[in-house]
Amino acid sequence: MTEQKELLEAAISEIDRVLIGNKSSDVNKIYLNNAKRFIKESMVDEVIENQKQPFKVGEYYSFEYSDKQEVFKVMSVYEDRMSVESYKVHFDMFSEFQTYMTGNSTAVTYSKPATAEEIALFKRAEHFHSKGRKLNEFKIGDILREKDVNGIVTEIREYGQVVVQYPGELLQVMYCGYIFGNLTLIMTAEELEAAAMEVEG
């Protein structure tokens, strides 16, 4: 039996004593305080176990804390800290360099290996960041790709819908936020303009 399980069973035993109901309120208070202490100690053991998780360079991890989600890639690990690239989902913010202490930081305590979906989200946010954009931020003149076909953004509508014109197509296609994941940003309008100026110059 693990120490954590023993502590939880001890807490249950203390609570059972209170439920019997034949003790004074002062004695019941002692039992309940013991139960709280056992539960807290079991939680500390779990946190310490999580902190022992080895972080590997190049691997992706994620954590959720206070309704905030973050996905990060470990770039380097030292004895007391690690450097990461991070995507804070709740802020829609990508950071190329962040340091987490490996002892008792929230990121270390609550992190777990990232899922395939979380890794894909991180890589998409990283790609947009490399283009100077937030995740799924499109502008008129951007070159996008969907299913091996390139198109150009011709309009951004009031509620964020993206209108794309594909070569040889008479009709334009409008995309809403929930299917932006199908679109790959190939070249931004700014990159196209800079390339055109380079050719002219």
Rank of each mutant, 00 (worst) to 15 (best):
V149C: 07
F138C: 07
E85A: 12
Q172I: 05
E6V: 14
V153E: 01
V44I: 13
E146Y: 03
G151Y: 00
E169R: 10
A125D: 00
F91E: 13
T99Y: 12
T102S: 12
T115R: 07
I152T: 13
Q161G: 15
V77Y: 06
D45T: 14
K40I: 15
F94E: 02
T99V: 15
T188D: 03
K134H: 12
F138G: 00
V173A: 04
N28K: 02
Y159F: 15
D92S: 13
G181M: 04
L170D: 06
L8H: 07
Y110S: 09
L7G: 10
K5W: 04
V57A: 07
H127F: 01
F128N: 03
E126W: 04
I186H: 01
G177R: 14
S111L: 09
A10E: 10
L7A: 13
D80P: 01
G103V: 08
K40W: 08
K147H: 05
V89A: 00
Y31D: 05
M43C: 13
Y178H: 11
V153F: 00
R17A: 06
A11G: 11
K147L: 04
N50G: 11
R133C: 09
H129M: 06
E158T: 15
E49D: 14
G141K: 04
Q98G: 12
E158K: 15
A116W: 04
V89N: 00
K73E: 08
V173E: 09
K139F: 12
V84A: 08
A120N: 02
V18S: 01
Q53V: 11
N50E: 03
V199A: 11
V47A: 12
D142R: 09
Q53W: 08
G181V: 03
V84R: 00
I186W: 04
L144H: 01
Y100S: 05
K23P: 00
E3G: 11
I140S: 05
D148F: 12
Y87F: 13
Y60H: 08
H90G: 08
T184I: 12
G168F: 01
E190N: 07
E85Y: 02
S13E: 06
Y87C: 05
G151Q: 00
V18D: 02
F180G: 01
A107V: 10
P167Q: 09
M75D: 07
F180L: 06
H129P: 03
E46G: 13
G103H: 07
V153L: 02
G201I: 10
V74L: 09
E96G: 05
N182T: 08
E137P: 05
S111Y: 04
T102E: 04
Y178P: 00
R81G: 10
S95M: 14
V149E: 04
N104Q: 10
G177W: 04
I140R: 09
N33V: 04
H129G: 01
S13Q: 06
M93F: 08
F122R: 00
A107L: 08
K73F: 00
L144E: 00
V108Y: 03
